[in-house]
């Protein structure tokens, strides 16, 4: 199994982002997804910066993929999308059907986790259009994924969201701006102050969600470290780790050691506990509520 670092979902200051990817270059991860997938207003890094980072990571031996924005609203969003699709250097992860439309017929792109692939017929369609790897939507269970891959038959790389706060929803509205009583068009880029997003709890103080601009994430950390044997059994080829503000390299190392058989998956999960910012969950993998934690 290979390890992938998913796109950075938060908005970090420029230097911090550059430093982060310098650290990633030395981490035992095989694939790195780059680019802004959440909000078109974020501008600390622009496409040429991401391409530069991509070159550095390629030189460090990583496979680099450029991820497209998930919610496309404006002509300017489409312009950015076209620039990503038209650059010939790196493969592209399509996170919207507009991206699929522009990539159709070109070979080797990645069908991203927001494309809603739930059945072999839709998967086959994307493969015919040139998808070489597909990232399962987080809500797809292990059993459903096994059935999907078995029915698809042909070899195809399958990636699963294995660690991080789950991307759960997208909106036209920015909930970070709303928290500060600002309109999105005048948001003052307040999300830059929240390196791991803005926690949302219930009125009895129970962590529930994480606000990240127009994206809503889980509060819990979806962590499949303890479930690695089941993932291998389900023919999963790539595990996606989603960047968090601290300890990302250590988490990657825990996954790398577990995948290589150095220690048990269970021990790796226990070692990850102090590195998590919240409780763990893995319910989606077991076909349950996503926030459930099932002991493997």
């Amino acid at each position: 199994m290979k390890l992938a670092l998913g796109p950075l979902l938060y908005y970090w200051p420029r230097q911090r982002t550059l430093d982060f990817y310098r650290e990633v270059a030395a981490a035992p991860v095989d694939i790195v997804y780059l680019g802004e997938t959440v909000c078109s207003r974020r501008h600390e890094l622009r496409l040429p910066d991401w391409l530069d980072i991509g070159e550095q990571l390629t030189a460090a031996g990583k496979e680099v993929v450029l991820s497209s924005q998930t919610l496309i609203e404006s002509e300017s969003d489409l312009k950015t999308l076209r620039r990503i699709v038209e650059q010939a250097r790196f493969r592209v992860e399509a996170n919207d059907m507009a991206a699929v439309h522009l990539l159709a017929g070109s070979a080797g792109w990645v069908a991203g986790p927001s494309l809603n692939v739930f059945n072999p017929q839709t998967l086959a369609l994307l493969v015919e259009l040139g998808a070489r790897r597909f990232v399962a939507a987080p809500e797809v269970s292990g059993d459903a994924l096994s059935q999907l891959l078995a029915a698809h038959g042909e070899p195809l790389e399958c990636e699963v969201f294995a660690y991080g706060r789950l991307p759960l929803a997208y909106s036209a509205r920015c909930f970070t701006a709303r928290h500060f009583n600002l309109q999105k068009d005048a948001c003052e880029f307040r999300c830059i102050a929240f390196e791991d997003g803005l926690p949302l709890t219930t009125r009895e103080g129970r962590p529930f969600l994480t606000i990240n601009g127009i994206q809503t994430q889980s509060a819990r950390i979806h962590n499949l470290l303890a479930d690695l044997p089941a993932l291998a059994g389900a023919r999963v080829d790539v595990l996606r780790i989603s960047p968090q503000a601290h300890h990302t390299a250590e988490i990657i190392t825990l996954f790398a050691d577990a995948v290589a058989g150095r220690g048990t998956a269970r021990a790796a999960f226990d070692a990850s506990r102090p590195l998590m910012t919240g409780e763990a969950c893995n319910g989606f993998w077991y076909g349950r509520a996503g926030l459930d934690q099932t002991i493997a």
């Binding site: 998930t70 789950l166 929803a169 997208y170 926030l291």
Partner: peptide
């Protein structure tokens, strides 16, 4: 719906039942 329809797993996360499936 304040979320993009088809791209909301809040209910799936909280209950296991999703609008999508």
């Amino acid at each position: 719906c304040v979320m993009v329809e088809g791209r909301c797993a809040l209910s799936a996360y909280a209950t296991g039942e999703s609008p999508n499936c």
